[in-house]
């Protein structure tokens, strides 16, 4: 007997629906678990005090500061470098063997897993350049790690700026750089910002590359040469070493909330751009 293809069609549709909502279900389970289990332990003291007894008691304030320092400094370094590279690739050269090599480099960097960034940062910054486990070593490692994301998103954003705007700028006697700074970058800014936001999200959640470069000291990083512990690293240590489940849940909630916030901002910016150009 031959099965009616319309019937198969319906079954397939049902199945695909189920799978899509299963995927969303995973996200809901993750977020719900963290929210319900973490929420009861979050209070003013947890956010704004230092950990005691390896994190069994007290809060995570130094980790919050450590995370903010690491992420902000990395973004400050990676953004000009990444946007500059994207500008070079889109505005200053034609497609050639040279740009292909650079693109290959960027793609390769993007594919390297974070543990290898950790390994590299450890041997190069921590050991060979004698920085020790420090904020500086962490910042430099994370900068290299997020660079490809910023380059790729910026390049996409810059490419989507209409060619006509550039030509008008040139016709009004702007140089290339004047055109880039006055016309191209302002028009591409939302796209570039989205890339920066995604990179922030990635850096906030990163563990493997951070733990071997910035270390895991529980104190405030008072200088660039001090070790420190980001929220993600703190959470990892709490959870893996079974120090305190309560604190682990609470930390993960703050971690996920901050990533959620960054994602929402990125999504908001992106939508504004889409609605502006359509």
């Amino acid at each position: 007997m031959r099965v009616n293809p319309r019937f198969i069609d319906k079954i397939v549709k049902l199945g695909l629906n189920a799978q899509a909502f299963f995927t969303v279900g995973i996200l809901i389970v993750i977020v719900a678990t963290i929210c319900f289990k973490g929420f009861p332990y979050i209070n003013f003291e947890f956010v704004f005090s230092s950990p005691e007894d390896m994190g069994r008691r007290g809060g995570i304030f130094p980790s919050i500061i450590g995370t903010i320092l690491l992420v902000m400094l990395s973004i400050l370094l990676a953004t000009p470098l990444g946007v500059g590279t994207a500008i070079y690739l889109t505005e200053y050269t034609k497609e050639s063997r040279f740009t292909k090599i650079i693109r290959f480099g960027v793609e390769s960097l993007a594919g390297i897993p974070s543990i290898l960034y950790g390994l590299f940062g450890f041997i190069f910054f921590v050991i060979k350049l004698k920085m020790g486990w420090s904020l500086l070593a962490g910042v430099l490692t994370i900068t290299i790690m997020i660079l490809p994301t910023i380059i790729r998103t910026s390049e996409e954003a810059i490419k989507s700026v209409p060619r006509n705007l550039r030509l008008v700028s040139y016709s009004l006697s702007a140089t290339k750089w004047e055109t880039v700074t006055k016309v191209v970058i302002p028009s591409a800014a939302p796209g570039i910002l989205t890339g920066v936001m995604l990179s922030i999200g990635r850096a906030v959640g990163e563990t493997a590359a951070v733990i071997f470069t910035m270390g895991s000291s529980l104190r405030f990083p008072a200088s660039l040469m001090d070790s420190g512990r980001t929220m993600a690293v703190h959470f990892y240590i709490l959870a893996r070493e079974g120090i305190s489940m309560e604190k682990a849940y609470a930390t993960s909630l703050i971690l996920v909330l901050s990533i959620l916030l960054v994602n929402i901002i990125a999504y908001y910016i992106m939508n504004r751009v889409i609605s502006k150009y359509s």
Partner: peptide
Amino acid sequence: GTVFAVPIPLP
């Protein structure tokens, strides 16, 4: 000075 076929105002 140059004026193109299509008006292209800068945003």
